[in-house]
């Protein structure tokens, strides 16, 4: 197994009095795809959002435990969430382009982080769109509104936008759940190609998808991490009865 990019130690999360995550500990290896599976409300998305501190924006949310990125605690005093999010990018369930042109959507992140050179921005835009397998489809309409793209293209645009800030980790919260099978297949191919350069963590409800795209799988239930391991083992030789029940469709 490759070295751990993210180490989570005894992480618990509360939304007011309700506990969302219970004492989760896991190590996410570098340059792999990790799938997070589990029934609705089990804490998959909450867990994902703790990895780039997006839960900071939820009123009443608080955590205990540690999340280490390359050995550095992201919740330590003095850590800047904006800088963290440059290293840990995120793609959401529904495509959410900004009300701007395709070019401006991609250039937004680098500009936020101080990139002012238009020549460099053009390079970044092209490179990001190529990585997201979208360049050939939009190269002639970079100055058109991002809303002129189809749903699948918009989601790949959001992935390109996240890649433009050159993150080390990419969190994807059910990135294909709002897309048709053709667009979903493109996102899955993309996920496979991205793991060479990035560490990917993907929340999915789709068990087949988890099996197709991931190297490791984590199974969550009621805020607890029940099992984590190589995807093949989780789906063929689960250690926990609850994991077996879930992956074989007995519940969920």
């Amino acid at each position: 197994m490759s070295a751990a990019k993210i180490s989570v130690e005894n992480l618990s999360l509360w939304y007011g009095a309700a506990q969302g995550l219970k004492d989760v500990s896991v190590e996410i290896p570098e340059h792999t795809v990790t799938a997070i599976i589990g029934p609705s409300g089990c804490g998959k998305s909450s867990f994902l959002r703790t990895l780039n501190r997006m839960n900071d924006h939820v009123p009443g949310a608080r955590i205990t435990g540690k999340v280490l990125l390359d050995g550095e605690d992201i919740y330590a005093r003095g850590q800047d969430p904006a800088r963290l999010r440059k290293r840990v990018g995120m793609v959401f369930q529904r495509p959410n382009p900004f009300p701007m042109t395709i070019y401006q959507n991609i250039a937004y992140g680098p500009r936020v982080h101080g990139q002012r050179s238009e020549a460099r921005l053009r390079e970044i835009v092209e490179q990001s769109l190529r990585r997201a397998a979208l360049w050939d489809e939009v190269r002639d309409k970079l100055q058109k509104s991002a809303f002129e793209l189809s749903g699948g293209q918009q989601q790949r645009l959001c992935i390109a936008r996240a890649l433009a800030v050159e993150p080390e980790v990419l969190l994807m919260d059910e990135p294909a759940s709002a897309l048709d099978p053709v667009a979903t297949a493109k996102i899955e191919e993309l996920t496979e190609s991205l793991k060479e350069n990035y560490t990917l963590i993907v929340v999915t409800h789709n068990m087949q998808q988890a099996g197709r795209i991931s190297d490791h799988t984590a199974f969550f239930l009621s805020g607890e991490l029940i099992e984590f391991g190589p995807t093949r083992d989780i789906f063929t030789r689960p250690r926990d009865r609850r994991t077996e029940d879930y992956v074989t469709g007995r519940f969920g």
Partner: peptide, 12 residues
């Protein structure tokens, strides 16, 4: 949701 997407890119 869109504002969160911007913040996920590191925007203030």
């Amino acid at each position: 949701a869109t504002g969160e997407a911007a913040q996920a890119l590191g925007a203030r």
